[in-house]
Design a protein around this nucleic acid. Structure first.
Length: 493
RNA sequence: GGCGCAUUCGUCUAGUGGCCUAGGACACCGCCCUCUCAAGGCGGAGAUCAGGGGUUCGAAUCCCCUAUGCGCUACCA
């Protein structure tokens, strides 16, 4: 094992079989952060060798996901680079050549076994309770016979695993992992359609692209001996290995669509901020020290280190993501926050609300909204009452639920507010004067403000809670405020 | 079944033989603040460090066994 210091170069190499999900993107984040923390490069490579599972829109979604999170790459399919192309489907001759080299060296062979034979073989192995694996039938074919059959029969190329001794993986996160070679089998590295499998393509491309660290999910650790042996057979220097712990769903199983894994871009649609996502993902399997839990990308790319990645799997906790999202919302500057509010209102407010969304309303409501929103998709529902003249829909029960269902109290509150607010002239319709008027009701009603005020929330906003009442009424205007009180009054009987 | 990985509060984690009667964060509970709801402040509860054996003056930290969980076991990645 040579220790030639290589410049750090990492990569994210997804297969375009759908939109990237969180588990997958966390690997990208760690690879990227590691490269950046070490002054290295980060590459994007598309592993499109499975033509059956290819999804047309994936490449766009992959790049969009990375961009959203602020993960930038130095070489990739969109920009090219010194090791182009970055689509494996465009690198077929390279894999062919490596496979031929391996055949010439006796470390690979053509296999003519049919799918049916393979199925039968596996069935027999299962029945005999033997471990499954290729039985090596074609490994003993002579080169001449192989050449002849290759002219008219379809075939795959299998790697001839060394079946003696052990293969040991030196993993940065897990230390040494030892595999018995006798348990390995001759896997397919080049498919009958001429495309390579992951195992071959990985080695050819990581070597060709001068990748220094192979950072990937733990689900790959079992196939590490395959990869190590190919490197040996080719005489190439392997990268440093780092197998990241899996991210588990709430059911403690590997995150999947079933267990609630969702595409990264879905989180954007659901109102999450990229900063929150990055912060959240960064701490799934890694930590900076014994007390930091809020960390931005700038700090992450400064301090990230593979030696502080833990080996055990982590459960995805949406509550924590929600907390971080609220935190980053509160940290936003006013301009961005107002733009965000306008954007989500435009997207989610009913069509009856005129576009563009009134910027004056947005600006006034922004500070009131900031500490009350955890997800961006909550915005529209909280401000909808400010748009449109009609009173919000609410049931009679809603009006009285916070006063113990007491219709009498609700009635007196509404009547009291009608009188108190009607006494506030148009030119005095300000937050402070409204507050004074409503506080004055405490004396006339003989009820504490906090006890009767929820009735007014429902009457004006349709809900017993939301942005502060006095500000809301000022924003609503005198006429609409009184009209809604009359509606509530009518509903109370 | 085989092989591999893992195991500290419900969750993410700190911890690399004495600083640990185990620290931080989310969630939870209480109090304060308060026009609702939040946010914020303060405080609380919550882990016999999976279990059992060792090693050691001393173990969450080292070794062994067991249990449990997860991953892999394709011409998918």
């Amino acid at each position: 094992m040579t220790d030639s210091p290589r410049p750090v170069r990492t990569r994210y190499a997804p297969s375009p079989t759908g939109d990237p999900h969180v588990g997958n993107i966390r690997s990208a984040l760690f690879s990227w952060a590691y490269a950046r923390a070490n002054g290295g490069q980060f590459l994007l490579r598309i592993e499109d060798t499975d033509r059956n599972r290819l999804v047309e829109t994936s490449v766009g979604a992959i790049m969009e996901s990375l961009r959203w999170l602020g993960i930038d790459w130095d070489e990739g399919p969109d920009m090219g680079g010194p090791h182009a192309p970055y689509f494996q489907s465009q690198r077929l001759p390279l894999y062919q050549k490596a496979a031929e080299t391996l055949i010439d060296r006796g470390r690979a062979y053509r296999c003519f076994c049919t799918a049916e034979r393979l199925d039968q073989m596996r069935a027999a192995q299962a029945a005999a309770k033997r471990p499954p694996g290729y039985d090596g039938l074609c490994r003993t074919l002579s080169r001449d016979e192989s050449d002849v059959r290759a002219r008219r029969e379809p075939f795959v190329i299998r790697f001839a695993m060394n079946r003696e001794g052990q293969t040991v993986l030196h993993d940065i996160i897990r230390g040494d992992v030892v595999f018995e070679n006798s348990l390995q089998d001759d896997f397919v590295m080049l498919k009958s359609d001429g495309y390579p499998t992951y195992h071959l393509a990985l080695i050819v491309d990581d070597t060709g692209m001068e990748i220094s660290h192979c950072i990937r999910g733990d689900e790959w650790i079992s196939s590490a001996p395959k990869h190590i042996q190919i490197y040996e057979a080719l005489g190439w220097e392997p990268p440093q290995w780092a197998h990241l712990p899996l991210i588990l769903g709430p059911d403690h199983k590997k995150l999947s669509k079933r267990s609630g894994d969702t595409a990264v871009l879905d989180y954007r649609e659901n109102g999450y901020l990229p900063e929150a996502m990055v912060n959240f993902l960064a701490f799934l399997g890694w930590s900076l020290d014994d007390h930091t839990s809020i960390l931005g990308a700038a700090e992450l790319t400064k301090h990230f280190d593979l030696s502080r990645v833990v080996p055990n799997p982590a459960v995805f906790d949406i509550e924590r993501l929600n907390f971080l999202n609220g935190h980053y919302i509160r940290e936003m500057d006013d301009a961005r926050w107002e733009a965000t509010i306008a954007d989500w209102c435009r997207r989610q407010l009913p069509e009856s609300v005129r576009r563009p969304i009134d910027p004056v309303v947005v600006k006034s409501v922004a500070p009131l909204l900031k500490e009350r929103v955890a997800r961006l998709d909550e915005i529209a529902g909280m401000v909808e009452f400010l748009f449109g003249y009609e009173a919000p829909e609410h049931e009679l029960e809603a009006l009285t639920e916070r006063v113990g269902g007491d219709v009498e109290v609700a009635l007196r509150t509404v009547d009291g507010a009608l009188v108190a607010l009607d006494a506030v002239p148009e030119e005095h319709w300000t937050r402070d004067d409204i507050e004074a008027a409503i506080r004055g009701m405490e004396a006339t009603l003989g009820v504490k403000l906090r006890k009767f005020v929820p009735v007014l929330y429902v009457a004006e906003m349709g809900r017993p809670q939301g942005i502060p009442l006095f500000d809301s009424l000022a924003l609503l205007g005198r006429e609409r405020t009184l009209q809604r009180l009359r509606t509530a009054r009518a509903r109370l009987g």
